[in-house]
Design a protein around this nucleic acid. Sequence first.
DNA 1: TAGAAACGTGAGCGTTCCTCACATTTGCAA
DNA 2: TTGCAAATGTGAGGAACGCTCACGTTTCTA
Lengths: 211, 211
Amino acid sequence: MTTMTQAMPSQPRKLPSQQRSRERVERILAVAGDLIAERGSDAVKMSDIADGAGVSIGSLYQYFPDKGAVIRTLAERYNQIGRECVERIMVDVASLDGLAEALKVVVDEYYGMFQDYPATRDIWSATLADKALRDIDAEDTRAHAAFLEKVLRKVGVEGDGTELTSYALLVMYLLCATVRLAITLPDDEARRVLDGYKVMAARDLLAKFAA
Amino acid sequence: MTTMTQAMPSQPRKLPSQQRSRERVERILAVAGDLIAERGSDAVKMSDIADGAGVSIGSLYQYFPDKGAVIRTLAERYNQIGRECVERIMVDVASLDGLAEALKVVVDEYYGMFQDYPATRDIWSATLADKALRDIDAEDTRAHAAFLEKVLRKVGVEGDGTELTSYALLVMYLLCATVRLAITLPDDEARRVLDGYKVMAARDLLAKFAA
DNA sequence: TAGAAACGTGAGCGTTCCTCACATTTGCAA
DNA sequence: TTGCAAATGTGAGGAACGCTCACGTTTCTA
């Protein structure tokens, strides 16, 4: 149980400025993602990543200060995919009912994302155990929530600022928690949990804000 | 990020049979809990635990086959506290409304447990990242759910078996997920998330089963 | 009181993360 | 083109930590 939990800059130690090194960094991340999906981040050695990317250990450490930095970089990329997923689904929502339906779709697609990008399972599993990843995650959830809040206002929900902010946070926290829990379950059980959550979340939204 | 994820017996390598060694094992666990609460399980070295307990490394490994076994043993103890908490609150429930209220109390007390036993925060955080801990956790959630299902039947809820089982699992999964998420937040924000969840869960229960 | 079983010890082995002194390649000004 | 500086690349080896094992000590039992 070694975690790269120390206070560590999430940023690469050095930004690659030449074409050659930028390609190397991409290759490193691609290999790392594949290996993590295949074996889990704990079982993947830095030397495995270096070998797989056709790069020396020294090169690897030139761009990533430690093993955690590789994982954090991947986590940030996957987070971005998640944000795009949420925003894509909610951008066209025009009514409260539409939002309730959109929430259900988000749950499904968010869950689907973990199946499309196998490394996300391991990385998100590791998230709660690692301070730096938790911070990345918290920031991401806030971004989700901020977007939901905008949508809530757009469909005519009123209320003082902090109340809406709290509610949006709650919904997105629960959504992320639920999905992250679901990926630890066998698929059929996961579906039941997610379906239950979808009904609950939509019902709660309408109960709270329907005129 | 080293996890003790391998398939490993959760049981001690050797059961202490003499008084002396039973006391040592208790001392080891007490020290481990304190150190983990203080520094987090990753930062705690096996040699730290041994030193703190006034015991040699060899002794430590005589009773715990690996570092993960220490943590799993603690996790199982804390799980038991959680089960007792849930059962204590729900044992006297006599009606659906009473159950809805009890659920709210469970959320608060479950959250309070993480504050009373500081090591639980770290250990539960690590749970998602570790296969063996996940299994312990899943089993625990099922125990919670089984109890809830009994209570549901007791207050007159009817339905075919698998449907109730699914619902009970959902409620308990969500409860655990929510609380575990809440402990990563500052207290005031955590309270808001939990309050929102309490309302949502109670409302969902009544909407689903109220005659 | 002796022998067996349980218990206790810590030097050191193996693995893995990561550093650092040095080599190579690239970009660019003269 | 050439030559120098900056950027990039290398891998042997240092350091940390989990864990083992051969041997010493205490407790139990008859």
